[in-house]
């Protein structure tokens, strides 16, 4: 980036009119940006759409710099691509994929309306731009005489100091708001360590293992997370495989290993040399796995109060 910020202003004409370099930059970046933006419309997966938007935003940063807005270009990279889009990606990961990613339209006529409105907007904006008169670009040579950030700072902390204060308040409020919105009330009394320990001991009768679960993958040939550990009796322990792998159906087949052990015990272990097959094929779509994951998370009891809204949602439909 630093090279860009030093190189690009050199491509600019002092009077604010575009140079050939800038034109090349524009004509390279503009199609990329449009394609990236269109990814927002046509990408089936939200992550792809987000990547497209990131491309657009980085390209925008280039354009800002090309237009003598050096400070904004940096801020664009830091704030948008560095913070906002990362936040988007975080939330995407948190929320996961669901049917709303599908491109099939469920509202009657919404697609037509959306296309008409979008195209109409484009046409109308084109009409406005075409009809406006701009005059010769003045350029920011004078305004940026003391470098761009200093010029901006003089305006922001001068003319717009009050607005800046307000925006600061807005940011604090937004942070607090996000906290409040995502906060969940504790519905049951908090249990201390002693109580949790007592509960685990008490659960022994139900077959819960008191000790930490055995680590997976203790076979010499298959030291991997998806391979179950062997118990003292030589049998594989399914519980040793991490839960997420089990839920996704990516664990190795415990029965296969059990059968192999039987063969070893029967004396035929040399005959077997091929790797154990996966327990199941990787799924074509993510939906069932996600659903299973969802079910698993709800079974952990974290969403006790959410059960009721779920039911009401079903009823509403």
């Amino acid at each position: 980036m630093t090279t860009l910020t030093t190189l690009l202003p050199a491509a600019l004409d002092a009077s604010g009119t575009t140079t050939t370099g800038e034109a090349i930059l524009f004509w390279v970046l503009a199609p990329i940006m449009v394609v990236g933006a269109l990814g927002l419309l046509f990408a089936r997966k939200a992550v792809h759409a987000a990547l497209g938007v990131i491309v657009v935003m980085i390209s925008l940063a280039f354009m800002y710099v090309a237009q003598d807005a050096v400070f904004l270009g940096i801020v664009q990279v830091v704030v948008y691509t560095g913070a906002i889009m990362m936040l988007f990606l975080f939330v995407l990961m948190l929320v996961g994929v669901d049917s709303s990613d599908s491109l099939t339209e469920t509202l009657a006529g919404q697609r037509v309306v959306g296309i008409v409105a979008g195209l109409g907007l484009a046409v109308v904006l084109a009409g406005v731009i075409g009809r406006a008169t701009y005059g010769a670009p003045v350029g920011l040579q004078d305004a940026n005489a003391e470098t761009n950030p200093v010029g901006l700072a003089k305006i922001v902390f001068g003319q717009h100091a009050f607005a800046l204060e307000i925006v600061g308040a807005l940011l604090v409020t937004a942070a607090l708001g996000a906290l409040v919105l995502t906060h969940r009330e504790r519905l049951t009394p908090k249990r201390d360590q002693r109580q949790r320990a007592d509960a685990r001991v008490a659960a022994l009768a139900d077959g819960v293992v008191l000790t930490p679960l055995p680590a997976p993958g203790v076979y010499a040939r298959h030291n991997a997370m998806d391979v179950p550990a062997l118990g003292p009796d030589g049998r594989p322990l399914e519980a040793s495989v991490p839960r997420v792998i089990r839920v996704r159906g990516q664990e190795a087949d415990a029965r296969e290993y059990a059968a192999r052990i039987d063969r070893v015990l029967a004396g035929g272990w040399a005959a077997d040399s091929e790797p154990p097959p996966q327990a199941s094929e990787p799924l074509s779509g993510d939906e069932p796995a996600t659903a299973a994951l969802d079910a698993a998370t709800s079974q952990t009891g974290q969403n006790g109060p959410a059960a009721a809204p779920d039911q009401s949602t079903e009823a509403d439909r």
Binding site: L40, L41, Q110, G114, G118, L121, A122
Partner: peptide, 13 residues
């Protein structure tokens, strides 16, 4: 303007 229209269409679609 083009980017704006695409963004608006994304909101709608």
């Amino acid at each position: 303007a083009l980017l704006f229209s695409i963004g608006a269409s994304a909101v709608l679609l």
